[in-house]
């Protein structure tokens, strides 16, 4: 089994509140995994543990980047997690509002570039080439994501759906092997959601990136996920393919309700 992310028995306590309780989860190479569950189930907390924002109270988080070594990443710094190849988006969009669309993506390239203070001041050939490479690569990503005609717009002036896509573009710029999307379809209209669905599948197939996605929109979850994990009150109550989850009585009871037949 070639999982790129392996989380074993991870628990996260906030004082007296147990937000995650002994959660196991694996994401395999080039698959789209979904993490679902009712509000407050601990999904975002799980992302925060994986990306270094929180250090889990208990348990182990391992990553095995394709072609790289397996390593434990509990409590690495946030920026280190990105360097190691895990990029994320945020539930409540966190772009750099007063930077242009292109600059937002260029920030994603930061950890793959080297120029330091002296390089910036002297601006020799190496630095100039690197800068141009950052710009070119960022633009390429924006073309792929479909934001190429808004490169010079300020991020805060983009419509909501485009902001969500820009967050994905920015995350892609860090060259991740695992992309963690926190409710990417939230606030999108049906047409945008469809385009997003297609985009996520394309990212997996063309860029060979694994995806772990939190999403409340069951239509998108059921149609593109290779595997689904269900959290409820911080505990994993089920895992399986879309059809397995759809029929799982525990899940239906906890969360899906009548939605499952819709």
């Amino acid at each position: 089994m070639d999982s790129v992310l392996e989380v074993n028995g991870t628990t996260m306590d906030f004082g007296g509140l147990r937000a995650l309780h002994a959660v196991d989860l694996q994401v395999r190479q080039r698959e789209i995994a979904a993490l679902i569950g009712p509000n407050g189930a601990g999904k975002t907390t799980f992302f925060n543990c994986v990306t270094g924002i929180y250090e889990p109270t208990e348990g182990d988080i391992f990553i095995s980047p394709p072609g790289g070594k397996r390593r434990r990443i509990n409590g690495v710094k946030i920026n280190r997690a990105a360097e190691l190849g895990m990029a994320r988006t945020f539930q409540n969009i966190r772009l750099f509002p007063n930077m242009t669309v292109l600059e937002n993506v260029m920030i994603g390239r930061h950890c793959r570039a080297k120029a330091g203070v002296l390089g910036a001041i002297l601006r020799g050939g190496g630095t100039r080439r690197e800068e141009q490479e950052i710009v070119d690569r960022s633009y390429e990503i924006l073309v792929k994501i479909g934001l190429a005609d808004q490169v010079d717009e300020l991020a805060k002036n983009l419509p909501y759906g485009a902001q969500r896509r820009l967050e994905i573009a920015r995350a892609m710029a860090t060259e991740p092997f695992l992309l963690l999307l926190d409710e990417p379809a939230a606030g999108m209209n049906p047409r945008e959601t469809e385009a997003l669905e297609e985009l996520i599948v394309r990212i997996r197939d063309e860029e060979r990136i694994s995806i772990l996605m939190i999403e409340h929109d069951m239509k998108i979850v059921m149609s593109i996920s290779d595997r689904i994990f269900v959290l409820d009150y911080g505990e994993k109550i089920a895992e399986g393919t879309a059809s397995e989850i759809r029929e799982n009585p525990v899940v239906i009871k906890a969360y899906l309700g009548e939605d499952v037949n819709a």
Partner: peptide, 21 residues
């Protein structure tokens, strides 16, 4: 430059900036 953009990103959103490496 790369450094300058990082400063601005830090000003705009500290968490997102770190999450970008």
């Amino acid at each position: 430059s790369r450094i300058g953009r990082a400063w601005i990103a830090l000003r705009e959103d500290e968490v997102a900036c770190q999450a970008m490496g």
